[in-house]
Amino acid sequence: KVMEIKLIKGPKGLGFSIAGGVGNQHIPGDNSIYVTKIIEGGAAHKDGRLQIGDKILAVNSVGLEDVMHEDAVAALKNTYDVVYLKVAKP
Rank of each mutant, 00 (worst) to 15 (best):
D71N: 14
D47S: 07
V67F: 10
H69C: 11
I56D: 00
S17G: 12
I8N: 12
V83E: 01
G29A: 06
L64T: 12
V87K: 02
F16G: 00
K37P: 00
E4G: 07
G41D: 12
N24F: 13
N24I: 06
K77I: 13
I5N: 00
I5A: 01
E65A: 11
I39D: 09
G15R: 02
A72T: 03
L50P: 01
P28K: 15
I39L: 09
S32E: 03
K89I: 06
G13N: 06
S61G: 12
E70L: 11
I18C: 05
K77G: 10
K46M: 13
P28Y: 13
V62L: 14
F16Q: 00
S17V: 12
I18H: 04
A19C: 12
V82T: 13
P11V: 08
V22F: 07
I5S: 00
A74L: 13
A58C: 14
N24S: 08
F16K: 01
M3I: 15
I38G: 00
N78M: 11
D47T: 05
L64A: 03
T36G: 05
I33A: 02
G53I: 00
L85Q: 01
D71Q: 11
Y84K: 13
K6P: 04
T79H: 11
L14R: 00
A44Y: 00
E65L: 13
Q51T: 15
G42F: 05
L85T: 01
E40P: 08
G41R: 07
N60H: 03
L57G: 03
K6I: 09
A72N: 01
I27G: 05
A44H: 01
L76K: 01
E40R: 08
K6Y: 05
G21T: 02
K37N: 15
I52A: 14
K37Q: 07
H45T: 04
K12A: 05
T79C: 14
K55Y: 03
I27C: 08
L14I: 06
S32K: 06
Y80A: 07
S17H: 06
A88Q: 07
A43C: 10
T79F: 09
I38E: 00
V22D: 06
T79K: 12
L14M: 15
A43D: 07
K89S: 11
V22G: 06
I33Y: 06
M68W: 08
M3P: 03
G48V: 01
A88N: 08
D54F: 07
S32M: 05
K37Y: 11
A19Q: 12
M68L: 13
I39P: 07
E4S: 11
K46P: 02
A75R: 09
V83P: 01
N24L: 07
I8C: 09
G63I: 10
K12E: 09
Y34Q: 03
G41M: 11
V87T: 10
A72L: 03
I8K: 11
D71L: 06
I18E: 01
I27P: 05
Y84M: 14
G13E: 05
L64C: 14
T36H: 10
S61T: 14
V2G: 06
D47H: 04
K37V: 07
I8G: 07
V67E: 04
A75C: 09
E4Q: 06
P28I: 10
H45N: 13
A58D: 06
A75E: 11
V67T: 11
Y84T: 12
K86R: 10
I38C: 03
A75D: 03
P90I: 15
G42Y: 05
Q51V: 10
K9N: 12
D30V: 04
L57S: 07
I56V: 14
D71W: 07
G13V: 03
A44E: 01
S61H: 11
A19G: 15
V87F: 09
Y84Q: 10
H69E: 15
H45L: 05
K6C: 06
G29H: 13
G63D: 13
D54P: 00
Y80W: 09
A19T: 11
K6H: 07
K1N: 03
I39S: 13
V82P: 09
A75Y: 10
V22A: 08
K1R: 03
K1D: 03
I38N: 01
P28A: 08
A19Y: 05
L57P: 00
A44R: 00
L64K: 02
